[in-house]
Structure formats: C-alpha cells, structure tokens
Design a protein around this nucleic acid. Structure first.
Length: 590
DNA sequence: GCCGTTTTCGGCCCGACTGTTTTCAGTCG
C-alpha cells in the first residue's frame, strides 16, 4: 500500500481496509484479533462516509471525534499526515503482496482468497493485478489451486468483468421509476397483501444499487411466477421459492422477496437496513435478551413472528423509525426516548425557489425551456403560494449597460406576471456565479433590479478548503444574497463535492440569516443528507428547491424532501414551508 | 481496536449462501 501525506478520505479508507485484510491473513493469535479487524473495517467505513476530509480534521485536532476512530488509529493517522507513512502499518504489510489489496474489490473475494490467489499465481505488484488474475482465470489456472474449483474460477472471471463494467449506481429518481413500474406490474396480480420497496431505495438514499422489492403473500409460488413474467426483463437471474431476481436493460437488477403476511414485518425491517442500523439495533436488543433476524424476534430460543414493522419496533420498546433515518446516526436512542423528529413532508412545501425560465438573460449557462408564465402556472398547479425565477446571471463579458438592460426587462416582465395574480408572488431573482475569488459575477447596480439572489459555484472546484470557505463567505456577505444554492456542487457519479469548513459556513449563515439550499435535481441532491443533518443540528435554515429548467421538472421536489428527511429536517427547519408573508419576513425580502 | 445510564474492563450482530469439503471457512448484506 502506497501512502503519502495528502491522502484523501477514499484513499485512507482503502488503507484501513487493507490493514483489516492484513490482520485476517496474518493472525497474531491474540484473542481480540477478530474485533481488531472489525474495528479497522468500521474505521474505514467511517472515514469513507465522513463529511470532512480527515486531513482537515487532523489539522483541527478533531480526528477522534469521528465515531469508530479512537486513540490508536488517530495516532496512526497523525503519523501519516506528518511523515507520509505509518511504520506500524508497513510492518503489518511486510511479506504481503501489494496485489492482494487490489483484488478485494472483486465481489466474492475477501482477504484470505485474495492472498491465496496472489501467492499461488505469483501476482505481486498492485498495478495491473486485476487484469493478471482475470487472464489466469480465463486460462484455467485457478481451478487447480487448493480450495478452488471450476465454479469458483468461473465466478472470479464473471466478477472481474462485472467490476470492470460496473454500472454506476442508479440515481434515486431513476430507481424510483423502475420500482414503480415493477410494482404496477405486480399489482395486476391478486393475492398480494402488501408490496413495498426495500434497501437504500426505501431509505431514499441518493443513489441505489439494486432495486429490492418485498411482497406479503400466502401464495409465494404464484407471486414469483408472475414476477418473472415482467415484460421488460432481459433475463431471469434466479427464481426460487421465496426469492427471485431479474435483470433489466442497462444491467439493473431487481430482487423480489416474498413472505407470508404474519412474518412480513421482520422481512421488511431486515432488508430495509441499513446494515449499520440493523447492527446497532441488534446490539440494543441483546441488552434486553432479544435476538433479531429477518425471521422475527427470538426470546429465550423462541421465535416471535412479526407481521408489521410498527410491532417489530414496539416489541423492542421503541417507536417506529422512518426508513430515511435508519443509518445509525442516533435514531435508536431518539426512538427509545420518543424524541424522533417529526420529519418534513412534501405537502408542507409552499414554494419553489430555484428555477430557470426561457427568458434570454445572455447567460453562459443553460436557459430553461418554458416561459415565465408557464413556470408560475405549474407552481399554482402544485399548490404553491410563491416561486422564485432564478435565471443565471448574464455573462460578465457583456457591458454593464447591456446587463442592466436585460435585468430591467426581466423585472418588467415579472411585475406584469405578478399583476395577473396566478399565485401570491413570483419573486424576481437570479442565480449568481461565485467567481474563484469570491466576487459575484454581476455589477453592483444589478442588485437594484432583483428581489434577492441565490449564489452557487459552477467552476474552480479544486482549491484549498480554506480558500473555498473564504470564497463562499465573501459571496454570501452581499445583503441581497439570501440562499447558497447546490452548495457542494457535487455531481453524483461524476464529481466529488467541494471541501468546505462547514462549521464556519453554517455559523455564518445562522448569524446572518442566510439559507442553505437542498437542491432536488437528480444528479445533485445537494446539500447531501449528512450535511443537512449537521446544518439542522447547528440551527441553520434550509430551503428545498428543484433547479428546474422545464416546468415538468418541478415535480422533482419530492426528492429534495427525501434528502431533508434523511437529514432529520422538520418543517420548522425549512424556510419554504412558511406561508407567503412569513416566508418574506423570514428571508428578509419585500 | 473501540467504547461506556448495567462496564475504564470486558464485552463486541445474525443468518444465508456457496463451493469445496467430509464438517466448514469465507464472504456478504
């Protein structure tokens, strides 16, 4: 494992996973070995999902604040950031081929298998390790090894191909669409008491791997027979008595699980996850001498079947936990103490504050496809009291005179639109670029022509955390700027978000009455849920908006609401749940 | 190696599947 001083969270996570794997392969014989492995895996997981870069936390001496990182690993990371290496880790990796850690990415290959393969096949270097194993398996050199056979060789070949072509994770709306279509097909058949999504889809995570669906029925064979007839399938992967899997175009896998109604609650709970939630829940249950599984709740060796989820949680002495919260972020304690948040709902939303009409504002970014009026009418249809039209700012290359003309023209058109009283208010706004130096891409006089501005980053994603933080704070300081839009600027499956000092940004927003946006567009879902949770804890006001470039995208508000819910947001945390007058007052606009 | 309203020592989730084996280890979610 190569290490250096500026390792990213992803690289550090991989390093910690490698340490765990090394311990599995080279047991020291100590009795706590098993748990040390688990501890390193947990730490790797925590680093991978942290909302700040470890290096930044290290500079602030806050490494141990991450759950799963104790004194020992914090010390190792301290050494890593100071010297670029960790002596203790190097000692552990000694005599192990670097190639083995690359093979861990292959599904079905764990530490033991990886080590055996690299040793037996003479693959040592990390670079190109996957290709070498792939070739060896294709040539039939794996089947002869002890503990391997034709089956496992085939498995390896297929898994590596899968890794190479790994279809990216599905975006939430895409996965939702697929699930809704499958569910509609299933409902054409009678004999099903309930049907629900499972897994990350049911928890409304931003991206989804497989689409998993649960059915309650006393006739599992019939349900499965109907399922495998799903017209859009490209292949039936497997069809057993209680489970079946289909492959859909684009490599999307849909799994179905069927249980009788009297055991459905345990099934639903178990396969909704998350893994971390379930582990924490079982630890909690053990203290009450209860053992949990997908089959039900065991007490003194006796299995209690559970028909619905409410009963499942009630049997543990807790309130039902909304799926969005099941990430082991404190929801179990909150549930026990009956302090779960009352999560915001779609019907609470009173307006959409980020959208683009076809008004020609001479921008260098995309314009929308619908007129100002069409956007307002769609807002009315969705039951909103207000919307904000936030076209991108005109190109800075235009003369100031031209820019002011464009903005005067837009203001007139919005004024006229407001005279028609389609909804209570159409706010005349702009989405303004935050330039690399923190200046806004708009002449000062322009601000007289708008009700308020939302600001966002569309370039210069790479810079130090300190620089990026100052950049945004400078932009937010403008009194007409009210909302920080798609804050991290991440694009799911495409680019990581910008690294900020969130404590500073949130503190500034709270103090100065600036709101932070949860952008609902499928590729963004930005602010990410973990940071929403942080913002909620710090008392920062949020908005949920769609960033629609066409009126039919405005329906996507539900996905932003999902993100808010995953971040523990209640109605009171979201500014655009307020009625028109209260909203105006809260945002400080006329 | 981590962690703490039953513990600063002594615990640490549960079950299924798979392939290669004669009774189980490794991996996964």
């Amino acid at each position: 494992m190569k290490t250096h001083k500026n390792m990213t969270n992803l690289e550090i996570a991989k390093l910690l996973k490698a340490v765990a794997a090394a311990h599995q392969v080279k047991p020291t014989g100590e009795s706590n070995e098993r748990f040390r492995i688990i501890a390193y895996e947990r730490a790797a997981d925590a680093v991978e999902h942290a909302t700040s870069e470890m290096k930044d936390l290290w500079e602030e001496k806050k490494l141990s604040e991450i759950a799963g990182i104790g004194k020992t690993i914090a010390d190792h990371l301290d050494e890593l950031f100071k010297t670029g290496k960790v002596k203790h880790f190097e000692e552990i990796f000694k005599c192990l081929p670097p190639a083995m850690f690359e093979l861990l990415d292959v599904p079905g290959v764990g530490a033991k298998t990886a080590e055996k393969l690299t040793k037996e096949l003479g693959i040592t270097k990390a670079h190109g390790a996957l290709e070498k194993l792939h070739k060896a398996a294709e040539k039939g050199r794996v089947r002869g090894l002890e503990g391997f056979g034709e089956q496992s060789e085939k498995e390896i070949t297929e898994s590596i191909r899968e890794v190479k072509e790994r279809t990216r994770r599905l975006l939430l709306p895409h996965a939702t669409g697929i699930a809704e279509d499958v569910i509609a097909w299933m409902k054409r058949k009678s004999g099903m008491d309930s049907i629900d999504t499972l897994g990350s889809l049911r928890r409304s995570a931003s991206t989804v791997g497989d689409v998993d669906i649960a059915v309650a029925s006393n006739k599992p064979e019939e349900v499965i027979r109907h399922f495998v007839e799903y017209p859009k399938k490209t292949k039936v992967i497997e069809a057993g008595r209680e489970t079946a899997s289909l492959l859909l175009p684009g490599g999307v896998q849909v799994d179905l699980m069927v249980q009788p109604p009297d055991a459905y609650g345990a099934l639903l709970q178990h396969f909704t996850g998350s893994k971390h939630h379930n582990v924490a829940l079982r630890v909690f249950a053990l203290k009450k001498k209860l053992s949990l599984s997908e089959h039900g709740i065991k007490k003194g060796g006796k299995l209690l079947k559970v028909s619905d989820e409410q009963k499942f949680y009630k049997a543990l002495g807790m309130a039902w936990i909304p799926p969005e919260l099941r990430e082991d972020q404190g929801e179990i304690d909150a549930s026990v103490e009956h302090k779960l948040p009352k999560l915001v709902e779609l019907k609470d939303i009173k307006g959409d504050l980020h959208m683009h009409s076809d008004f020609p504002s001479e921008t260098s970014h995309d314009v929308g496809v619908n007129t100002l009026q069409e956007m307002a009418e769609e807002g009315k249809r969705l039951g909103y009291e207000y919307i904000a039209l936030t076209e991108h700012n005109p190109k800075s290359a235009e003369s100031e005179k031209k820019i002011l003309e464009i903005l005067r023209e837009k203001k007139e058109r919005v004024d006229k639109l407001n005279d028609k009283n389609i909804i209570k208010r159409v706010f005349n706004c702009l989405e303004i670029d935050i330039q690399p130096d923190g200046k806004l891409a708009l002449p000062e006089k322009s601000f007289d022509f708008i009700d308020f501005g939302i600001v966002s980053i569309h370039s210069s994603f790479k810079a130090t955390r300190d620089h990026q933080t100052k950049r945004v704070l400078a932009a937010l300081a403008n009194p007409k700027v009210k909302i920080f839009a798609h804050p991290t600027a991440r694009k799911l499956n495409e680019r990581e978000g910008v690294d900020f000092d969130w404590d500073k940004i949130f503190e500034f927003c709270k103090k100065n009455g600036k709101a932070v946006e949860i952008n609902s567009s499928p590729q963004r879902l930005d602010l990410p849920d973990m940071l929403v949770h942080k913002a909620v804890k710090q008392g920062v006001k949020l908005t949920i908006s769609t960033d629609s470039h066409a009126k039919d995208q405005m329906i996507g508000m539900r996905y932003g609401v999902s993100v808010a819910r995953r971040g523990w947001a209640e109605k009171k945390n979201i500014l655009n749940t307020l009625g028109y007058l209260d909203f105006k007052k809260a945002l400080g606009v006329d």
